[in-house]
């Protein structure tokens, strides 16, 4: 018995009855459970990210409302953003600035009578051609 080659190689271990008959079903059941628990785990895992996305969206929305109300409507030009301005766009920007100036002049002259304007023009010798050219 001291020599291993003389020892009987019978396994001293036993297995419960029907163990191997049911194992395939047990494994399939476990795989199903793992699949379901994995699916259930995905939503709680995404929850913080969904909250973060909702918060960022909310902040952007609020910032947009505040900025919209803070900037006077006459200076708001949704067609021109800072990034869109290039050298070739410069004349447009200038003409937009001109139109803003003419609005301001119109507002400033609204309280001045026609007689006062004629008097001013005659004092500075501005003829009708110059006036028409600057319109």
């Amino acid at each position: 018995m001291k020599d291993l080659s003389n020892k009987k190689k019978e396994s001293p271990f036993k297995v419960p009855e029907d163990y191997f008959e049911n194992l395939a079903d047990l494994v399939q059941e476990r795989i199903k459970t793992e699949k379901t628990s994995k699916e259930k785990k995905i939503i709680p895992m995404l929850k913080p990210y969904l909250w973060m996305a909702a918060s960022i969206f909310g902040l952007v929305f609020i910032a947009k409302i505040i900025l919209t109300n803070a900037v006077p409507s006459e200076f708001r030009n949704p067609k021109i953003s800072q990034t869109e301005v290039s050298v070739k766009d410069t004349p447009n920007v200038v003409s937009n600035a001109d139109s803003a100036n003419s609005i301001w002049i119109k507002d400033a002259l609204s309280d001045t009578s026609s007689d006062e304007i004629i008097e001013y023009l005659s004092d500075y010798d501005i003829d009708s051609e110059t006036l028409l050219a600057n319109l």
Binding site: S11, F13, V15, F20, L23, A24, D25, V27, Q28
Partner: peptide, 17 residues
């Protein structure tokens, strides 16, 4: 599922031991 059950049945004993 059927194929996997076959695989389990084929190798379960050897892996068990």
């Amino acid at each position: 599922s059927k194929a996997f059950a076959m695989l389990v049945q084929k190798y379960q004993e050897r892996l068990y031991w």
